[in-house]
Design a protein around this nucleic acid. Structure first.
Lengths: 220, 220
DNA sequence: GCGTCTATTGAACGTATGTTCAATATGAGA
DNA sequence: TCTCATATTGAACATACGTTCAATAGACGC
């Protein structure tokens, strides 16, 4: 039997499909995120990404100056999407500032966020920020966006409730830190605490900050 | 000029120095941590580690079954050292439980911990926990150790102060999360907040937990 | 001083990496 | 229908990776 008969995929050149640059970029970004989720950074090679996107190796460097530039784009995409989803959930609930903050907490401990594979992607981004300025820039911008959302809700809270004083900037940093830290630990070991306990922790810390984090800076 | 004269290191075989297995293992661990600090995971190769340790390539697989096993050992070493340093600082201060907790906070925002290169190493470990069971095991153990230290101090606090009730297990998880999250964000962008603000955030959150995280579980 | 055990070496292997580039196919506008 | 800018291909390149293993050298009991 001739060996050629065993070749399942006829080794001729692949059918070329011409797409709009935007569609191709999106496909590459999606494939990148899939790879980072399922294989981790160390296994996410240009070749694997291109295989996922049903595209040849050379195309990445046609659309992006380097692999890192593609990954930076993917970072921006997933970070914006995630914050957008949280904000949408808050808007959906509405209500007073305190209720909107609670909705934000609950959304932050919902399955969309509490996804170990998502953390895996994020850890890759954080690690890459050290060697890629483009990725560090995306981190800085998206982190500022997250802080702005939290600070906005805290400002509303102070405005709505009388007799409260709070350093909203610092409070936002604290809540973001608490949310991120609990996110990391839950994703690395989901048996440590339940999502409901995570929400309770956020509520308790928010109360503490409202009482002991006044704008003037000195702890009472 | 003959090119041989430019060769600075005569290419003969390296002088062999026989050491005790423990000393070699320590040297390999130290070299591994140096590489992870300075070059990141993706650049930390067996060859680079061996170069740092002034040892040939083959030696790693003489002492360790694989590169991952070496890294798991390095993780355990640095995690134990770090928690040990924090505990030592707490012991040095002594005092009541509340004062010891404050000392722990301050130590957690001291330069030894607030070191971007150290976070870089940690992010590598967290990321590797996904594909290496050995590293995941080290994470679980060392995280449990961290929780035990915090929970112990919280238990003492409840015992010493009357009229307080606190779910110490959950409180420890919250403090660990807050500390980790703030640690990540500070190391990725040191201009976001000052170490002193970090400590203030921890104190405020601890107060909130003491008021609103009772043992029975229902938020009052 | 000899023999033995093992710590240590470094070449070799097979595989993978990111990027480059000449060649080629495609589809929109003339 | 023809043209042509360009989207797309995949072989090629240089380099790097983790691991293996036969050869070798240092230390210790005798």
């Amino acid at each position: 039997m001739a060996p050629e008969t065993d070749i399942t995929r006829p080794s001729g050149p692949r059918k070329r499909e011409r797409h709009a640059p935007d569609a191709r970029r999106r496909a590459l970004i999606d494939a990148t995120l899939q790879c980072l989720r399922e294989c981790g950074v160390e296994q996410t090679s240009v070749r694997r990404i291109c295989e996922r996107a049903s595209v040849s190796v050379g195309l990445v460097n046609h659309y992006y100056a380097s692999k890192d530039a593609l990954i930076a784009d993917a970072y921006a995409e997933v970070a914006d999407n995630l914050l957008g989803a949280l904000v949408a959930e808050v808007e959906r609930h509405g209500g007073c500032a305190r209720a909107r903050l609670s909705a934000f907490f609950r959304a932050s401990f919902s399955p969309v966020v509490l996804d170990p594979d998502l953390l895996r992607v994020w850890l890759s981004f954080w690690g890459m920020a050290y060697r890629s300025e483009a990725i560090a820039d995306v981190h800085d911008r998206t982190y500022r966006d997250q802080l702005a959302v939290l600070e906005g809700m805290l400002d509303d809270l102070v405005r709505e409730e009388e007799e409260t004083d709070l350093d909203a900037r610092l409070g936002a940093i604290g809540l973001a830190g608490l949310l991120d830290g609990l996110w990391v630990e839950w994703c690395l070991n989901a048996r440590t605490f339940t999502p409901e306990e995570g929400v309770r922790l956020c509520e308790a810390c928010l109360d503490g900050m409202l009482r002991r984090l006044p704008r003037n800076g000195a702890t009472p």
